[in-house]
Simulated assay, not measured.
Amino acid sequence: MSGILSVGVGLLFAATQEMGQSLFTMFRVSQLTGVLFVIAGLVSNLLFKYPVLLTVSFAVNCGCIVFALIGAILISVDLSQWNTENDLSLKIEVMGLCVLGLESFLSAVLCIWFFKEKNAK
């Protein structure tokens, strides 16, 4: 669900801002991370039916954390260079950063559980 929220935030931001105005829109941070988190969620849900996907789900969630950290760095660079003429875009970008934080936290929890489960087998 957080991946869908991330894609929505990215589409809203892309519709309200020019392409070269920020790194957030230039690299499509929110859309990319949102799609990755949706895929991670689907693979994690398939674990109930196909437990053999544990390694794949662990790898996908670790990859999501890496991409989320890269995205958070890009957003932080944007926020440090922000001009005060458009407060709505600033709020949307901060919301995108918060969603990335939530997604990273969820993936980290899943990675810890998957790692424990993998070592238990």
Rank of each mutant, 00 (worst) to 15 (best):
K49D: 09
L11E: 09
P51N: 14
A72E: 07
L106T: 06
A59V: 10
C62V: 14
S6R: 07
G20F: 15
L46I: 01
S89W: 14
M26Q: 12
E93W: 04
K91M: 09
L47S: 10
A68Q: 04
G41T: 03
Q17V: 15
C98Y: 13
Q31M: 13
F67W: 10
W82H: 03
I70F: 09
L74F: 13
I65T: 03
L46V: 01
C111V: 15
Y50V: 09
G101E: 03
V77E: 02
F24L: 11
S104N: 03
A40Y: 04
L46C: 10
Y50E: 04
F24Q: 05
D78P: 06
I65N: 05
V94Y: 11
V94P: 01
N83A: 09
K116P: 00
V109E: 02
I92T: 13
I92V: 14
N45I: 00
E18C: 08
L11I: 14
W113V: 10
L74S: 05
F114C: 03
S107Q: 06
L5P: 00
K116I: 06
L100K: 07
I75Y: 08
K121V: 11
V38K: 02
I92L: 15
G96V: 06
S107H: 05
C98V: 12
V99Y: 08
I75T: 08
G34T: 06
G63Y: 08
L102K: 04
I73S: 11
G10L: 11
G101I: 08
S80R: 08
L32Q: 02
A15W: 12
F115A: 14
N61S: 10
I73D: 10
R28E: 12
R28I: 07
T33Y: 07
Q81M: 11
K121G: 07
V94S: 02
G71M: 04
T16R: 15
V43R: 01
R28T: 10
A108H: 05
I92C: 07
K91W: 13
I92D: 02
A120K: 15
T33W: 09
L32P: 00
S2E: 10
V9K: 08
V35T: 05
V56N: 06
L69D: 00
S89C: 13
Q31Y: 03
L36D: 02
V43M: 03
V29W: 05
F67I: 12
S30W: 07
F67S: 14
N119A: 13
A59R: 09
C64V: 00
E117H: 11
N61R: 12
E93A: 14
T84D: 14
V56G: 01
V109N: 04
N45W: 13
L90A: 11
L100D: 04
E103D: 08
E18P: 04
N61Q: 04
A15E: 09
Q81S: 08
F37K: 01
N83M: 12
E85D: 15
L110W: 11
F114I: 07
L42A: 10
S6C: 12
A108T: 14
V29Y: 03
M19Y: 15
